[in-house]
Computed example of a mutant assay.
Amino acid sequence: MQNWFDAVHQIDALSDLASFAYANPTFTFPKLSDTDHVLVAEQMAHPLIKSTQRVSNDFALSGKGRLGLVTGSNMWGKSTFLRTIGINLVLAQMGAPVCARKFELSLVQLFTSMRTQDNLEENVSSFYAELKRLKQLLDLLQQGEPIFYMLDEILKGTNSEDRHKGALSLIDQLIKENCRGLISTHDIQLSALSKDQPNIQNMNFNSSIVDDEIIFDYKLSLAPCGSFNASKLMEKMGIIKK
């Protein structure tokens, strides 16, 4: 009977995958690369955003030790972009089509540090929870499997000096290991690392101010962040007076 139940579960899973593919005819089945550390996507978007509202981006991050440093101000779409890559990687590795025109990847173990929270019962602050998560990543790297990591708003729970120091040390370790991935941060100074580290690729999203309104295009740019909008957002909310 156990074999029967296993067969039913497998048919159920395959049926769901088939339904997902049927419901999304514009999605593409990914191509699996025989080379390690490959990820190339064309017109990739988040599958849970309505097709009329999606903003697609081309993206590539291939090669051992490669790190995409996503800088930018608030509401630019950094976290959504990380989730876009993550959910498409999950879909691709489970045999489903992805929300992209083209998607080529090598098999990886996905690791994320996003939305870390405090825990009153365990006396754990949100910052310490993030540190524990990062320690899990470093321990996982010692097992030798290729890893694709996504770290959102790295070390956000501490002061700017300690955050910068900790981020520098972590990045220095990651670019030497059997992994690659993305780190989003408000620490613009980190973008200078790409001058001496060819494994680091700067990325950002742009915004513009038109008629006193902030306009976001959610298009990826391969450069450090060059503008900020936090002051304008606080001004619009009445926190900063004109």
Rank of each mutant, 00 (worst) to 15 (best):
F20L: 15
I175S: 01
E145F: 11
E161A: 15
K156D: 09
E130L: 07
A100W: 06
V55M: 08
W4Y: 12
K102Y: 15
L82Y: 12
Q53W: 04
L190W: 01
N119I: 06
L105E: 03
I239E: 07
Q43V: 03
R54V: 15
D196W: 02
K195D: 09
L141S: 01
D118S: 15
D196E: 15
L17Y: 08
I11V: 11
N57Y: 02
S15V: 11
I11L: 15
E130A: 07
R54Y: 01
R101F: 07
R163S: 13
P97N: 11
G226M: 09
D152K: 10
S169I: 10
F20T: 02
E177C: 04
S19N: 13
A100K: 07
L233I: 15
Q142L: 13
C225K: 06
G181N: 02
L168Q: 12
K31P: 00
Y149H: 06
I154D: 10
H186K: 03
K219T: 11
E145P: 00
S51P: 09
E161G: 04
G77V: 15
P198W: 04
D34Q: 13
L174A: 00
L190A: 09
L131G: 02
W4E: 12
R115M: 07
R66E: 12
S19W: 03
Q117F: 13
G86R: 03
F27C: 07
L91E: 04
R180K: 11
L134E: 05
D36F: 03
L89E: 09
E153H: 07
E130V: 14
R180G: 13
N199I: 00
F148R: 13
